[in-house]
Amino acid sequence: MSAVTQSRGSAYKPSTGKRIQAWLADRFAMIAAVLVLLYLFVPVAYTFAFSFNNYKKSNITWNPEGSPTLKHWKNPCGAPGVCDSLVKSLEIGAIATLVATILGTLVAFALVRYKFVGRGAGNVLTFVPMATPEIVMGASLLTIFVQGFSRVGLQLGFWTIVIAHIVFCLSFVVVTVKARVQSMDPRLEEAAQDLYAGPTATFWKVTFPLVLPGIVGAAMLSFSLSFDDFIITNFVSGSETTFPKFVYVSYLRGIPAQANVVGFSMFVIAVSLVILAQVIGNARKPK
């Protein structure tokens, strides 16, 4: 390989322009990728910067005479509603994730592992919610909650948000776990059976540990979708306020910088957790 390159190099010397072109062509994808990643971070950086704004009336423009301040970071719950709405979002996200992950995993196993009458319908039923615009799902849920479920005592609020979030999280869990179950080598389960593991032992000692990363991934996806959802939440929340709804509602009056603090902190926490998980995963692999 190198000999070929060398002999060609001695016979034919490309011009500097050509060489720069070749260098760029080789790295075009990587350069473009880095630029796109930076683009993804622009508003995050903005949010971070404006968490230090020592503003007087509203946190829209940088206060001309004020130097950066740490006061919003020292007292993130200082503005009314920020922490209350955050806690609500975390609670809703946790419950919705737990329920959606359990139900979705069961459905995924049924759809991948068995052939039965209604399997096709099951596949469609779990896929269609993903192809439904959020606004339609929100509108239909609002209709049924107001016109149907309120008669049995279910008022718009915390639990209607949880119910709605489970619906869309469920679809994503099913798709994620299904992919993981499908990609599993069937011989591993055969090997377990061959090694005296009955159906129950095969499931808990082999199948489940191997599918677990997919389930964990699905749970993380669920939580982030639930935590960040605004459109459906806005329809079914009544007077309950989640963090995204709090930000949206306070937009006209001016969003307190504490919201920036919370938003950026969530970002940092999430990134740290993911990196921590990877580091632990790497450390557990003996060299």
Partner: peptide
């Protein structure tokens, strides 16, 4: 890097 911005609320980023 692709998933992380999700955690800074979508509304906050749009307003940004």
């Amino acid at each position: 890097c692709i998933i992380a911005p999700f955690f800074t609320s979508f509304i906050l980023r749009t307003i940004a």
